[in-house]
Computed example of a mutant assay.
Amino acid sequence: MNAIATPNADQAQQDIVDEFAFFGDWTERYQYLIDLGKQLPEFPEDLKIEDYRVHGCQSMVWLVPSGNADKLHFQATSDSAIVSGLIALVLRVYSDRSARDIIATEPRFIEAIGLAKHLSPTRSNGLAAMLAKIKAYAAAALRA
């Protein structure tokens, strides 16, 4: 049995909800988001091109897909510490999943941890743009 099984998208979202429940206030939760963002893998400078840029974000965000409809992997980065943390959460839920799973998975964790109420409108728009781009990449992989 594989001891390091990757949780499915629903379990990944529940893990995120459970982690955020440990923190008493939003100052601590923002710090946790920033810490998560610092743990993102190194992002190659040569991928910071217009083709991979997510528009609708106030900060600069790049999102690069790889793989196929059976398993899509995403690399992403941002020039904003909090947005990098949001990327870390989104990648936990959506990266390394099948295109069908990605399209079927609603980002319930955003509401469940209270992010929806605590993000500025521009960050909320950026998060929505990132999720839309991930789902667009998944839809394209299914058509390929």
Rank of each mutant, 00 (worst) to 15 (best):
H118L: 07
I110L: 13
L115G: 10
S120I: 09
A104G: 05
R92D: 09
V93I: 12
R92K: 15
E111H: 13
S120N: 09
E106I: 00
E111F: 04
V83R: 00
K117Y: 07
P107F: 05
E111R: 14
R108D: 13
V93S: 10
I113F: 10
V90L: 13
S95W: 00
V90D: 00
S84M: 01
R97A: 10
F109Q: 08
P107L: 03
I82M: 04
L86A: 07
Y94T: 07
A88S: 15
T105V: 08
L86M: 13
E111N: 14
G114P: 01
A104K: 12
R108V: 13
A116T: 14
A99C: 05
R108L: 14
G114F: 08
D96H: 13
Y94R: 06
A112T: 03
P107E: 02
T122M: 15
A81N: 14
I87Q: 01
L115C: 11
R108P: 00
A104D: 15
T122H: 12
A81I: 01
A88N: 05
G85R: 00
A116M: 12
L91I: 02
T122R: 11
G85V: 05
T105P: 03
A116Y: 08
V83Y: 02
A81S: 14
T122V: 15
I87T: 02
V93F: 02
S95K: 01
